[in-house]
Design a binder for these strands. Structure first.
Length: 491
RNA sequence: CGGGGUAUAGCGCAGCCCGGUUAGCGCAUCUGGUUUGGGACCAGAGGGCCGCAGGUUCGAAUCCUGCUACCCCGACCA
């Protein structure tokens, strides 16, 4: 089986790429570094969007939309922000084309140069804070809790489907608050929301923590992060929430009159997750047979495949299948009945395994006669024959069980691949030979952090929240350290 | 931007060194038939500006020059 996918153990990167394409999620486009997200991949994104959007709204946020283009001058307002994004910006310089003078095709009209170049947004802090300036005058205008679903462009050197593409889809929240405490609380609240989503919907365990100065967002005071561990032992940053202090308020002169009647700068946060989450979903759960989707995010939760010879049998089985479909749908389950006559059952079995559909029901002449149905689980690849009488309850139960089971497996994997290293040799041995998360002491300096990165390609993923103080010595410099930090090689 | 490579059917490739029939193979596609409880089989068919532009030659996918695009390895990154 699975002869159509590269073996995961042989070449993880190739397996990943094959899987994305064979499962019909996305493909490379004619535009360098940009992908076409195909209907099945997009359906997964829509599920992610639906749940997150619900969670954002439940915590008081509202959606809005800001422009794709940002005037170049806006970027220079916040020094660290330009510094961080300048090298990966797409720039619009002209607004018109014309026929080529030599009659071959079209050229950019040199007379149509823009007075001020426009940047295709790599993130929207600047245009949004420039807008907020006019929206906020008083503490009564605060807090402002806005999210937008958008696309952004970052001109990365090397791209990979879903994990890093030149254009990607995301949501970005941008909030404004009257006090530092309130903004910090918001940034942390969103990190909890992300963590809740990733663990309970995506079924991927996270480590929550704060980024080091060199890893934090360009323009942030603090960047909170959720870090996940992929099956190949590399870390993936799943989402970040930034406490921006008053940096953007000062850069864009956003002041308000507080309750004491004094002018003060507004406190800010921003936070986002991207289509990269789909990459995480794949790399956390999928196997050599294909995708394994958590039921809570699967666009199709149950597929019904009929097995038949001739139209008479198909008609009889379709009757049963459609009745089953409607019962399951009444119970809130998303069902697809695949009665295509152009593919054989074996092909369909393999196809839905590739696509990670959590539960497959097969109904053949035997089942029709005996009142049964064959139930196959994607996560365990096990099959059982179940009576149709209590099938709805059974499938509902399976949804919960599969969701829990794949989370449990991911937690076990994460835990058994999290190490503690106390010496440089131990550290490099784990990073080089085993991969995974490594908790180790660090002297707190950017110089040491940089040196470790140069020597091992491992970076500090986070200073984890749930890390008790513990005296130790830095694995590289030997200087004293108060607590362990989380290292890994990362995507 | 530095180093290496590739460009031939929708996809993956052979042919190029050593120029010479009608440019070939696998997958996919289409037609007909037999099949259908784990990726079917047989027979047939369609599909090509050999990346682009020049040059050498009686003759170029093949040799030469230039261009372009893409891929891999580094620095950057959600």
């Amino acid at each position: 089986m699975a002869k159509f996918l590269t073996n995961r153990e042989e070449n993880y990167a190739q397996w990943y790429n094959d899987l994305v394409i064979k499962a019909d999620m996305a493909e490379n486009s004619a535009v360098r570094g940009c992908m076409v997200i195909k209907p099945y991949g997009y359906a997964i994104w829509e599920r992610i969007q639906a749940e997150l959007d619900r969670m954002f709204k439940a915590t008081g946020h509202v959606n809005a939309y800001f422009p794709l283009f940002i005037p170049k001058s806006f970027f220079s307002r916040e020094a660290a922000h330009v510094e961080g994004f300048a090298k990966e910006c797409a720039v619009v310089t002209h607004y018109r084309l014309k026929n080529s003078p030599d009659g071959r095709g079209i050229v950019v009209d040199p007379d149509a140069r823009l007075e001020e170049e426009l940047i295709v947004r790599p993130t929207s802090e600047t245009i949004i804070w420039n807008t907020y300036k006019d929206w906020i005058q008083s503490y009564r205008d605060l807090p402002l809790l806005i999210n937008q679903w958008a696309n952004v462009v970052r001109w990365e050197m090397r791209t990979r489907l879903f994990l890093r593409t030149t254009e990607f889809l995301w949501q970005e929240g941008h909030t404004a608050h009257a006090t530092m405490e309130e903004a910090e609380e918001e940034a942390r609240k969103i990190l909890e929301l992300y963590s809740d989503f990733v663990e309970n919907y995506m079924a991927v365990p996270v480590v929550k923590g704060v980024k080091t100065d060199s890893e934090k967002f360009a323009g942030a005071i603090d960047t909170y992060t959720i870090e996940m561990l992929m099956q190949d032992g590399k870390a993936l940053q799943g989402g970040t929430s930034h406490f921006l202090g008053q940096n953007f308020a000062k850069a864009f002169d956003v002041q308000f009159t507080n309750q004491e009647g004094k002018l003060d700068y507004v406190w800010a946060t921003s936070w986002g997750v991207t289509t990269r989450l789909i990459g995480a979903l794949i790399m956390a759960h999928a196997d050599n047979n294909g995708l394994v989707l958590p039921p809570k995010l699967a666009p199709i939760q149950v597929v019904i495949v009929p097995i038949y010879k001739g139209n008479d049998q198909l008609d009889a089985i379709s009757g049963i299948a459609l009745e089953l479909k409607s019962q399951l749908e009444k119970a809130g389950i998303t069902v697809k009945y695949d009665n295509r006559d152009t593919q054989k059952p074996g092909f369909k079995f393999a196809e839905y395994e590739l696509k990670g559909v959590p539960v497959r029901l097969a109904i053949g002449p035997r089942d029709a006669e005996q009142g049964t149905v064959e139930v196959a689980r994607r996560d365990t690849l096990t099959k059982e024959t179940v009576s149709r009488d209590n099938i709805v309850e059974h499938v509902k139960g399976l949804m919960d069980e599969i969701q829990k089971n794949i989370f449990r497996k991911a937690v076990e994997f994460r835990d058994s691949n999290t190490y503690r290293a106390d010496t440089w040799d131990e550290f490099t041995d784990i990073i080089e030979n085993r991969g995974g998360f490594v908790l180790a002491h660090w002297d707190g300096t950017p110089e040491t952090e940089e040196k470790i990165k140069d020597l091992t390609k491992a970076t500090i993923r986070a200073l984890p929240f749930n890390n008790p103080p513990e005296k130790g010595r830095c694995i590289l410099s030997g200087k004293p350290s108060e607590r362990r930090v989380l290292f890994a090689r990362a995507y």
